[in-house]
Structure formats: structure tokens, C-alpha cells
């Protein structure tokens, strides 16, 4: 068995573990007689899925002989891993079982899309990507994306938890708690995103002779950055705190996702490495 095959099989195993974990988290959320036990089982399965995914991503990197983020498929699986790792770290100190579904479902979707639509076999890179900056620029984008994804999940949870007369709201963590969690991971993502854009600009200067050229990917990276800057400001502006700030965080995440999917699918630019 070669590394590429190991990667594919462990990825499938991770997906199965994550599906079970999500399923159990749903049962826990919709009300069961043993919520704590279900929460524990779900968290353990999430840990198992993460372990499988670590192997899958590493094996993919070994099979390709380079950092495993040279196309959309690899970005998606590595990005999912980044979210899971941050989620598990947060879960050590915080009880996240009430919000687990909101984190796990999008991740499951991401892994599913990766294996169906985005999948491409291992191949070498085009010369434009052969640079040390690939490791720095793209890994930072992936890590920032991990923060944004969690921030998004918590922000959605926050909006649901703040609804009055909602049965679901009573089972979620308080909206204040979710707001704070959402802020922490998003602010962290924002700082790393800033670094990623900066590293990208240095690379662009090195590869294309300009550090900024309004390429669609660059434009949407900036739009994402500005949207999250707006979110950080909204949190400290009277009249915008809470729900409205969460809505801006969701706008920011939408533009991040569009930068990943939309720009690769709809626009022709210098960043067309997706492999679609």
C-alpha cells in the first residue's frame, strides 16, 4: 500500500467517525436521557476522526512529496483538520457539547465535498507554486480559516441561543458564552489572516513583480479582511454588539468561503490552482 492509498482510506475512516460523532451530537442536542454520556461519546469520536485525518493529511503530503495544500482538495482536508484541532483544544477547557453539531456538520460537508467534487489524485505542482512561500502563505490561510470556521459556527449558535421562546436555545450554551468564544477564535483567525495576506503579498512581489494587483483572490482576501475588521469594530460599538456583530462575522465567513469556492470556480485569475 502506498501513501496515497493510506491517505484515501484514513480520510474515509475519518469521515465515518465524524458522521457517527455528528449523529450522536444531534441526539444529545434533541434531548436524550443521558446527555453527558452522549456528549462524551461524540467528543471521543471527534478525537478519533481527528487522529484519522492527521494520518490522511500527512500521508497525502508524503505521497505528493510536498506540503499537502497544492489544490482545493488538499486545502479542504487540511483546513478541516485545522478546525478540528482548534475545536478539540477549546473543548479541553470549555463544555462545547451543546454547540458540537454546529461545528461538526459543516466539517462533514467539507470532507464530503472534498472526496466527491474536489478530489484529484496526487500530482506535482505547477512551477508558480514551487516556493517556500507556499508553506507559509497557504498554511496561514488554512489556520486562519480554521479560526473563522469555528467563529462562524459559534456565531450561528449565538444567534440561535439568543432567540426567545426557543426550545433549542435552552439546550445551547448561553449566547454570551458563545459570543465570547466566537470572538476569541475569530480575532485569532483575523491576526493569522493578516499574516497570510502579508506573506502572500511578499510572494506576489517575488513571483509576479507586484505585491498587490487586484487579482480576484487578492480582492476577496481583502474583502474578507475588511469584513472581519468591521466585525471587530462592531463588537465595541454601541448598538451593534451581540446579534448584529454576529451577523457581520457570518458575512465575513461567507466572503472567506466565496474566496475559496467562488473565486476558483467563477473567476479566471492568477490564483487558478484549484484543480477543478
Amino acid at each position: 500500500m502506498n501513501a496515497a492509498v493510506i491517505s484515501n482510506w484514513t480520510l474515509l475512516s475519518a469521515t465515518i467517525a465524524l458522521t457517527l460523532s455528528t449523529f450522536i451530537a444531534v441526539i444529545k442536542l434533541t434531548g436524550s436521557s443521558h446527555p453527558d454520556r452522549f456528549a462524551k461519546i461524540s467528543l471521543s469520536l471527534t478525537g478519533l476522526a481527528t487522529a484519522f485525518l492527521v494520518v490522511a493529511v500527512f500521508a497525502r503530503g508524503i505521497a505528493a512529496g510536498r506540503a499537502p495544500w497544492g489544490n482545493m482538495y488538499e486545502y479542504a482536508i487540511t483546513g478541516t483538520l485545522a478546525v478540528l484541532v482548534v475545536y478539540l483544544i477549546l473543548a479541553i477547557k470549555n463544555d462545547l457539547s451543546g454547540i458540537a453539531v454546529f461545528v461538526l456538520m459543516p466539517l462533514l460537508l467539507s470532507l464530503g465535498l472534498a472526496q466527491t467534487v474536489l478530489y484529484i489524485p496526487v500530482a506535482d505542482l505547477v512551477p508558480a507554486l514551487e516556493s517556500g512561500w507556499l508553506v507559509i502563505h497557504v498554511s496561514a490561510a488554512i489556520i486562519a480559516g480554521g479560526g473563522f470556521s469555528l467563529g462562524f459556527a459559534f456565531a450561528v449558535g449565538q444567534l440561535l441561543a439568543s432567540r426567545k421562546n426557543s426550545k433549542l436555545a435552552t439546550r445551547l450554551p448561553s449566547s454570551e458564552q458563545l459570543e465570547l468564544l466566537s470572538y476569541r477564535v475569530t480575532a485569532w483567525g483575523f491576526a493569522v489572516w493578516t499574516f497570510s495576506v502579508l506573506a502572500g503579498a511578499i510572494w506576489a512581489e517575488n513571483a509576479w513583480g507586484r505585491f498587490w494587483g487586484w487579482d480576484p483572490k487578492e480582492t476577496w482576501a481583502l474583502i474578507t479582511w475588511i469584513a472581519y475588521a468591521a466585525y471587530l469594530h462592531a463588537r465595541v460599538t454601541v448598538g451593534w454588539r451581540g446579534g448584529k456583530a454576529a451577523a457581520i462575522a457570518i458575512v465575513g465567513y461567507t466572503s472567506y468561503l466565496f474566496n475559496f469556492f467562488g473565486v476558483n470556480i467563477f473567476f479566471d485569475g492568477l490564483h487558478s490552482y484549484g484543480g477543478l
Partner: peptide, 20 residues
């Protein structure tokens, strides 16, 4: 004011979109 800065940031998002 912070409120204006916030609105201008959101406006900057909107006016950037046609450029892509």
C-alpha cells in the same frame, strides 16, 4: 465616530465586489 468607521468598512466591502 466608531459607528461611521464601521459603516464605511462595510461600504468598502460592497464597493470592492464589482472589481472582482
Amino acid at each position: 465616530s466608531m459607528r461611521t468607521a464601521l459603516l464605511l468598512l462595510l461600504l468598502l466591502v460592497i464597493v470592492s465586489i464589482p472589481g472582482s
